[in-house]
Design a protein around this nucleic acid. Structure first.
Lengths: 336, 336
DNA sequence: ATGAAAGCGCTAACAT
DNA sequence: ATGTTAGCGCTTTCAT
């Protein structure tokens, strides 16, 4: 690989002149400019970003940490991040923890050593984890999940509202006895969606049967297993099931079908997330769209701002508004 | 951020001693070792990988270029890559071209400048593209797709066999008039799957109606649109449709349903890829598994070998064997 | 066993 | 307008 030194020799100019034409950081006479650009072409020169980074203390690289790229919620988010990174000549180092929580620390160390300009994190839900991030001193923005009392840079959605949209739809369809299949209450999104469900039910004057409110995880298995549990423990089944996420709804529908219960004929099922292919699921899933692509995009744009500002800028929390997506899993309006 | 210099001062030793204890590259007396490690802890020192990379000419970073992370075929592959990278303290820069072919060149330049140690490419199907890669001089291995006559490092699957497995299954189910919904014939996987289909049909003594062999793309829309086309142009519909990929099958099933045709009752549909959630699709899709996670894993392992060998090692082509996955979309055996 | 010093490829302050 | 030079943080010969 040719270096700037090679160019300067070939073009018979100084190093700083080469640097000046490459970075257009100072006026260079057309004469010398041509000699330099010619040499660059001839030697097929490419600047060495590592050397530049060492000098400039910036790598134009960011780290993205997610829990599980296999969860269909994340690919659009990652695509959103990558798209804006690409537009700004930034690169994205993908860190996929595969739900192994202790991988986070290792990734953080690696990112620190690699001198990334910033971090995008989609799986920080506890103060302990946040603390680890803060200790790195890196610039960062949190996506989707956040610890209690967190008031710094963040891009997420209105989770309470997402449940409300879901419940409203179910109520409009005429369902009254509605179950909630939730997630891990250590995660704010799970807490907020759960409380949105409960408060919205109350708002409608509907009872929430505690036996019909389940905790779980953001996984298909969780939905499946909770259905089994419900079938065992609950005497009177619900008319509808409101879930914390599409993958959970997938598991719920699978569990229901395995038990010979038809969706939506016997029980309606509502998703939340609007994952890819939910439209084409066993029974096309009604859901609430969270535009995770948009979240990715906005978080990267925010991070770029944070990186580029010289003095610390005021923190921002961007909360997107979810929207209802009606398909078939909650049947047609029973009131009309 | 503390540097090695800070450590050497604090511990009152030379730079090379600090380096020696960090890299365990030379014997250092217990006495000095302790002083150094203490200083490292006290100053919370982290080695600067950028500086190290500049000196060592290796970044422990690789670039991964894929066409579209939204295609469910890729996340498992990326996860496989990332998992073995993680085990070797390598980082993965994700390059998602979003099917914009001209993004490839830009990514290649960026990867060159960033001095990645190697490249994993899942979308190189033409000699022209391969040429671009070769010009970078970077080490690389191709995944899944490859240009004609390519005989270098590669990890893929036996595409011909994947079609044969599909056809065999359909024939076993009693179908005789079988259509093929293919992909872009510029891509070897599409060509091989198509020719596997045709030869296997012949093997069974079955006619291939040219009007029932479609070209297309690896996308849902392609399957959907080709169904429309078929419905318009073909007088006698097929009993079964063999597709080049699950996403195409998704589109096919959607198109069929929209036209009031039931799957598998009226027409059977066979996937190929076994994407995530195919199991939970509108009608659970019978498919052929390609273990894209395994492909990712093996390709990264191969790349690491290539990177670590001093002298050029013999090229390797790893061809995985696909396996049939029977679900519901091709009905039950009509012969029994 | 430890230290001094050169140099990886670049940028930027300074000198001319 | 162009060139000289120091230095980013590290590794690695070469002395001692």
């Amino acid at each position: 690989m040719a270096t700037m030194k090679d160019i300067s020799k070939k073009a018979n100019v100084s190093l700083s002149t080469v640097s000046a034409v490459i970075n257009q950081s100072a006026y260079v006479s057309p004469e010398l400019t041509k000699r330099v650009t010619d040499a660059i072409k001839e030697l097929n020169y490419r600047p060495n970003a590592v050397a530049r980074s060492l000098k400039k203390k910036s790598t134009e690289t960011i780290g993205v940490i997610v829990t599980d790229i296999l969860n269909p919620f994340y690919p659009p988010m990652i695509k959103g991040i990558e798209d804006v990174a690409f537009d700004h000549n930034f690169n994205v180092i993908l860190c996929n923890t595969s739900n192994e929580h202790n991988r986070i620390s290792t990734y953080l160390e690696l990112m620190l050593e690699k001198q990334v300009d910033g971090l995008l994190l989609a799986n920080i839900a506890t103060s302990a984890d946040l603390n680890e991030i803060e200790k790195t001193g890196l610039k960062y923005v949190l996506i989707n999940r956040k610890p209690p009392f967190y008031d710094k840079n963040f891009v997420g959605i209105n989770n309470t509202l997402s449940s409300e949209l879901a419940v409203n739809h179910l109520v409009r369809q005429g369902y009254k006895r509605i179950a909630f299949f939730g997630g891990d209450l250590k995660i704010n999104t799970a807490r907020e969606r759960r409380s949105g469900f409960i408060s919205c039910m109350m708002e409608h004057g509907l009872d929430v049967d505690p036996k019909l409110v389940f905790e779980g995880e953001y996984s298909l298995d969780s939905g499946y297993n909770n259905v089994k549990k419900m079938l065992m423990e609950v005497e009177q089944l619900p008319e509808a099931i409101c879930t914390v996420s599409d993958v959970v709804a997938f598991g719920v529908i699978k569990g229901l079908r395995d038990a010979g219960i038809r969706v939506p004929d016997d029980i309606a099922v509502m998703g939340n997330d609007n994952s890819a292919f939910s439209e084409h699921f066993l029974v096309p899933l009604s859901s609430v769209d969270h535009s995770s692509y948009e979240m990715g995009k906005l978080s990267m744009e925010l991070l770029l701002q944070v990186i580029k500002e010289k003095e610390a800028m005021a923190d921002r929390q961007i909360i997107l508004t979810p929207s209802l997506v009606v398909r078939e899993s909650c049947g047609v309006n029973r009131n009309t």
